[in-house]
Simulated scan of single mutants.
Amino acid sequence: MSPTSSLRSLVLLLAVAVFAVGCDGFETGTAPDSQSTGTPTVEFASSSVGAIPSDSLVTLDVQLQNPDGNAVIVQLLYAQQASSAAPADLANSIDRITEISFAATSGDTTITRPVEIDISDADISDGRKEAFFALQQVESDGATRLGEQSEVALSIGFPPVEDIKEAGVGASVTFEAIVTEISDGDLRVQDETAGFWLAGQDELAGEASRGDLLRVSGTISEFSGQLQFFRDELNTYTIVSSENDLPDAETVTLSEADENFDELQSQRIRVENITIEPGGDSNFQGGGAEGNYTVTDEQGNTLTLRIPGDSFYAGKPIPTGPITFEGVLGQFRGDIQLRARYEDNIITE
């Protein structure tokens, strides 16, 4: 499970716990448990739903599975106190408690009742918002009970980069992220969850600046072990805002950067107490094979320090003592690289 998914699950569980003790009138009804085949159950079709305001209407599907011939009523709770999405973000389109009815029927089938929520006026100017919902109070003359999927999180806003990466090669996606590096026509962007590579984007590279918040749409491909939008794979882009703080760099060791590259690719990292092997140079060279230097930690682990051709460090003296690297993690043809593009990427001790 991803960290974001874990957080959502934790928040939702806390929300359920709060309401269960009566803070907001939450009652669990029949508790979900291990269910045998054929047991009538009511649950959501999915545990999470994502959408952006331009989608206007979002549907939460509530399903009755294996009906036993009895009518069923279940309550849908909007857990407002646990949600960052206020009623106004949902256009006041749903009550705190909504009753959902299923007519008497039977058979090995699934009956779905859609619940529409209007998110067209949701304010996501400060980031994504979430609304939490839960099913409760099943009423039936039969044995119908709540299923395991009795809670759902509605995420309003652009999906996190972490989820974009999970969509994989070939997926058409839209997301927002902050520019962390611009170098030789390429951009690295990142949100609070992960980084992404916009490759071969000369036009955008000429317009954007480090710290810009971009909204981009495109089709994912892969090169040299990194997910990317390459050239025309980037369909549209918008500079939403500028001069934003860069995402925090995650502190890792050289071995962790190596072992966890899939997770950390195109992301800002911090590696402390490493030394640079100058390879006979007194000043950094930039670009080409000459711009690659080996860095070593106290345990003898090594990675490549990359000095791009447009790096601040090209031509500057190579530090002789321990340094801290704080910048983007990249890769080229299997060679994992710490990319030193800006003056603040190398911190001398």
Rank of each mutant, 00 (worst) to 15 (best):
A340M: 09
A134V: 09
G200P: 02
E349F: 03
S255Y: 06
D248H: 01
G107P: 11
A167K: 12
S106R: 02
F229S: 09
V295D: 11
F261G: 11
G107Q: 10
P159K: 10
L77W: 03
L12I: 06
S217D: 01
W197K: 02
V74A: 13
E176K: 14
Q63M: 14
I220D: 02
D118I: 03
E130R: 11
S84N: 13
R210W: 00
I239Y: 03
I111W: 00
A257Q: 12
R333E: 15
L213F: 01
R306W: 14
E250W: 00
G170K: 03
A208M: 05
E326F: 01
T304S: 15
Q190R: 04
P159I: 10
Q190I: 03
Q299D: 15
D108S: 09
G321N: 05
I119H: 11
N301R: 03
Q267S: 15
S54V: 08
P247L: 07
T109C: 10
T236I: 01
I239L: 08
A85F: 02
F196I: 04
P159T: 03
G330I: 03
Y237Q: 08
Q65F: 00
L154N: 10
I156G: 10
D118E: 08
S93H: 05
G300D: 07
L135A: 12
S56M: 07
G50S: 15
P308W: 05
A205R: 04
R8N: 14
T144G: 07
T98D: 11
T324R: 06
S56D: 13
F133C: 12
A79M: 15
L10W: 04
R231A: 15
I156H: 08
S46E: 14
L13V: 01
F133W: 05
V11Y: 04
L57C: 00
N244D: 14
G38E: 04
A79N: 11
I220L: 05
F332T: 03
D184F: 05
L57S: 11
D191M: 05
I164K: 02
I94F: 10
N92E: 13
A205N: 06
N301S: 11
V271W: 03
E130A: 12
Q137A: 13
T4L: 05
D68S: 12
S221D: 14
T238M: 10
L146K: 04
G291S: 05
G309T: 06
L264I: 02
Q337R: 13
A143H: 01
V138K: 10
L77R: 13
V42H: 07
A71H: 11
L146C: 09
A51G: 09
I239C: 10
I117R: 07
G147D: 08
N70D: 15
A177N: 04
A289C: 00
L329Q: 09
D191T: 05
F158M: 12
T180C: 04
R188W: 01
T304Q: 13
F158Q: 12
T193Y: 06
A79K: 01
P160N: 08
A15I: 02
I336M: 02
V49A: 15
G300H: 05
L198D: 09
F158G: 08
E151W: 00
G280P: 10
F19R: 14
F132N: 12
Q265S: 15
R215G: 06
T59V: 14
P322C: 02
S155M: 12
E130F: 06
A167W: 00
V252H: 04
A340G: 09
A45G: 15
G287A: 10
